[in-house]
């Protein structure tokens, strides 16, 4: 798998620092799983975190904190959750981050029609969780289908899992990550051949250009 589109260094650093939102963080996690180059960068970010931790001015713990901790050492170790079984969706092996989300909610659910040629499985926010404008979903785009031209109030991050799409920035294949800010207007088109499956996060609702698309947005909550 040759990856040509990467997140910015700032994004990888945010991920290593543990300060991304769940939805965009999940898309970066999917990319990192596929990209040794960015994993090395993330590891360096962790080393930066370690040296910053080391350099922090310590804040005193309660006087009995160590005694309390020592007394807890014989407590049985917490059992880590079993790794999720490998999940396939349309024959595509899903990244670990999606598998864990699926495990937590007891299954992925099924594709739901969103627009002609576009289907979606919603992952975040989880049912019952507070809506804060940040969403994560799987998208399946039929070959040749364009996602209507749209800009963003916030950021959008997409990691391709299968198939490919092309927009003004080039072709995006499995593992590639597209990161677009509020200033970008773009029209991704799924390439011919197989459907394009992506993991997509936005931290603010998309803003479509055409009236029809805006109508679709209001109806579909896209």
């Amino acid at each position: 798998m040759s990856i040509t589109h990467h997140p910015t260094e700032a994004t990888v650093l945010d991920h290593a620092a543990g300060r991304m939102h769940a939805a965009t963080g999940a898309v970066v996690a999917a990319h990192l799983q596929a990209c040794p180059q960015c994993r090395a960068l993330a590891r360096m970010g962790e080393a930066i975190g370690g040296s910053l931790l080391e350099a922090l001015t310590p804040e005193a713990m309660a006087p009995d904190a160590l005694a309390v901790a020592m007394a807890l050492l014989d407590r049985p170790a917490p059992v880590p959750p079993a790794p999720p079984p490998p999940a396939l969706l349309d024959g595509v092996e899903l990244p670990r981050v999606v598998q864990r989300l699926a495990q937590r909610r007891g299954g992925l659910g099924r594709w739901r029609w969103l627009a002609p040629g576009i289907q979606r499985i919603s992952l975040l926010p989880e049912p019952g969780a507070r809506r804060d404008g940040t969403v994560l979903y799987l998208l399946k785009i039929a070959p040749g289908t364009a996602i209507p031209e749209h800009g963003h109030h916030g950021h959008e991050m997409v990691c391709v899992l299968a198939g490919s799409f092309t927009d003004a920035l080039g072709q995006f294949r499995p593992g590639d990550l597209a990161e677009t800010g509020p200033e970008v207007e773009h029209t991704p088109v799924a390439d011919a051949g197989t459907s394009c499956i992506c993991l997509s996060a936005t931290d603010a609702p998309l803003r479509f250009r055409s009236r029809a698309a805006r109508l679709m947005q209001s109806v579909m909550g896209y």
């Binding site: 991920h15 620092a17 543990g18 300060r19 991304m20 939102h21 769940a22 939805a23 965009t24 963080g25 999940a26 970066v28 996690a29 990192l32 799983q33 994993r39 993330a42 590891r43 962790e46 080393a47 975190g49 370690g50 040296s51 910053l52 931790l53 959750p81 670990r96 981050v97 864990r100 989300l101 975040l124 926010p125 969780a129 507070r130 804060d132 940040t134």
Partner: peptide, 30 residues
Amino acid sequence: TWVFTIARNMRIDALRREPRGGIVPADDLP
């Protein structure tokens, strides 16, 4: 570095348990 990653992940887990938590699930960090 190792202690930092544990602290980072446990902080995220703690935030996730809060009602308005919303940060990358720790287990998905490399």
